[in-house]
Nucleic acid binder design. Sequence first.
DNA 1: TTGCTATTTTGCCGGTTGCG
DNA 2: CGCAACCGGCAAAATAGCAA
Length: 545
Amino acid sequence: MADLDEVKRQIEKLREQINYHNYRYYVLDSPEISDAEYDELMRQLRELEAKYPQFITPDSPTQRVGAAPVEAFGVVEHPQPLLSLANAFDDDDLEAWYRRAVDLLGGRKFDFVCELKIDGLAVALTYVDGLLEVGATRGDGYRGENITQNLRTIKSIPLSVPRDKAPSRFEVRGEVYMPKAGFKKLNQEREKEGLPLFANPRNAAAGSVRQLDPRVTAQRPLDIFIYGLGWAEGGRVPDTHWEILQYLKTLGFKINPNVRRCDTIAEVRDYYRHWVEYRETLPYDVDGVVVKINPIAYQVELGYVGREPRWAIAYKFPATQATTRLIDIGINVGRTGSLNPYAILEPVQVGGVTVKSAALHNEEDIHRKDIRIGDWVIVQRAGEVIPEVVGPVVSRRTGAEKIFRMPDKCPVCGAEVIKPEGEAMHRCTNAACPAQALERIKHFVSRGAMDIEGIGEKLAQALFESGLVKDVGDIYYLTREQLLRLERMGEKSVSNILKSIENSKDRPLARVIFALGITHVGEETAELLAEHFHSVDELAKATRE
DNA sequence: TTGCTATTTTGCCGGTTGCG
DNA sequence: CGCAACCGGCAAAATAGCAA
């Protein structure tokens, strides 16, 4: 019988050693011992923990991969919302942002911190009493998904931080990404195994963190860069962003080595130009540069405009482009009756994905860019994501190209098309146009029917085709976003209204409507629905055939 | 002018359905 | 039963258009 205190000491010593070498290897990228030596330490720890499970702690390096897959991701409320950034596309945009900050700060001097904008997905990591408690996606900025189990498998994320140095509760934010080399290797393996390939590192990373089984995530070459502090309680933190980054580094977090403090906006431009040129040499994808105003006090003073901070901006790299044929221009009829033209393109690779179509917005836009059917066109991915037709390659015209004209009859219902004065969009005049009706139903169903299984587009189709919903104009609804916003603002009345509708046992129809996210329907529509369906289940079942 | 919503495309995961 | 096809939801960002 071994002395238990001695065993505990030994386990703690092993953990300390492993954590140290883990940090050297994954965070600093400069290991001191060989892989074999590291594996041996891990083996010893596993053996001791297997024998003395009472000494297993959640931050032990053996506990990175949790045992069981989760059934679904929970929801995490962000105490401080994770917002997006305003974009700059040229020096003028950057200058305008800078001028505004100078103005608002009354001419006071300040410096900047420049960082690379890693192409991955934002996460928030919460630490309580030194232990990693929750890891969450950004979601809509206010609530995200709980992906703690998956984030724990990322070796450069510390499972614990020194309690004597860290605030008792705090949240760091970072970008999870997949290095180019790891992505390439992963795809080679997938090809060998006959599995479908990932389109690009960003999508591969996003897919990996949404795995229900953390053991799968553990096999994916994910990494993270921490770029800031969300909030902190019970402890002092530095009062500039630059110092916060240095401080987080001392806590064991992985900070991008290419961050730089700049005194002038000219230095910021230099930083940007440097990375426009050298971005390809980086071992990961980068889609721009993030510029932040350094003093936290000034950040607080500048505050936010809507969902964007005034104290930071994303200076985007020029988009990657490709050339392809514009085969035709198609038209979608939107929920509001707007006729939305889109480009049907010869499939082409742009920045890692295949682009087949792209929104063309409106007729004016098409003519302004002088895009004609049959043209060779330049396609780019705006902000590295959304495909966009930049313009035609005029020199490759043959003369057979056709100028696009908006039809004067709705392509779906044949009703007259009008273009209201001062508006860019053409509209179908028929409020009962099937396309409009379908889009409308699809819209509220996809927003509201979160809890009903197996319905969605099919329900929309069935509802419309059954003729039950004729007068779509008198269907009112609240989108999920609107509900969330009202809740955030402390407005309880909406949820109370919904609750009372839900509870009205004598009105099964009301419950159907509630479940669909509709808060009020016109009397005629209500009666029609009530004649045919008496419960949500019935409605759902009816649409399965 | 500013703030907010709707609409747009691609690709991923996870779940369901349909076919042989 | 196993696989393919499809659907729903999520993530990313730009633009149009409306309201204040």
